[in-house]
Design a protein around this nucleic acid. Sequence first.
DNA 1: CAGATATATAGCTTGACGGCTAATTAGCCG
DNA 2: CGGCTAATTAGCCGTCAAGCTATATATCTG
Lengths: 108, 108
Amino acid sequence: MDVYEALADPTRRAIISMLAERERNAGDIAAGFPIAGPSISRHLKVLRESGVVSYRRQATSRIYRLEPDSLSLARQWMDAQLDLVKARFDRLGAHLDAMKASEEEGAG
Amino acid sequence: MDVYEALADPTRRAIISMLAERERNAGDIAAGFPIAGPSISRHLKVLRESGVVSYRRQATSRIYRLEPDSLSLARQWMDAQLDLVKARFDRLGAHLDAMKASEEEGAG
DNA sequence: CAGATATATAGCTTGACGGCTAATTAGCCG
DNA sequence: CGGCTAATTAGCCGTCAAGCTATATATCTG
């Protein structure tokens, strides 16, 4: 599963928000949701396999941490799309300015 | 469907890329993919209903356009998460610097 | 090793998604 | 209105995701 599919589920986004704030173990994460532990475990697996989170062991628990790089990548993609739109918008503005200028030249 | 689910499908992301470059009608969009027209039409519906694209009529065709605001919103959410992580990282760095300074003070 | 705790995996069910073809709607032209 | 084109909607099917409970794995403790 890629990062976009990982982001598609609201529970997973909430987990990301929790982990953005600070690291937590799986149990603490699960405690924050009304759904069963195994379901959270599966969400964590999705997040792991898409590179959004990593974990380290501490005794019997797994401490999960957000890995910013995968999110950054998704953000960069959005940035690129938004930049294209903005560039187009700016060109349109310049074009309109040029039209207006030549109009005034013709009139004056 | 929200913008994150809209982004989850690779075909829809490709449509977004096409529209970031310039407006296109539904037929031209569909021509860029190996899947049937109605399937593209459904993707466009998802993108419409999640606010990612809009369209205007021109004769019998619909000209689709990317609406940057919804993408911006998703990007802002990512920014916020990444900022939290970065802030934590910076605090950790400051903490380590302070530790190191007090160590040197003790040694010197 | 036996027991306890924390987490993950297996197996199942249900609902949604994405693909297809066929039928329908919307607008243009004679 | 009748025909033409562009696009969407309807209906169907296979696959997959997300929830659940029950079972298995991993680690610490005695």
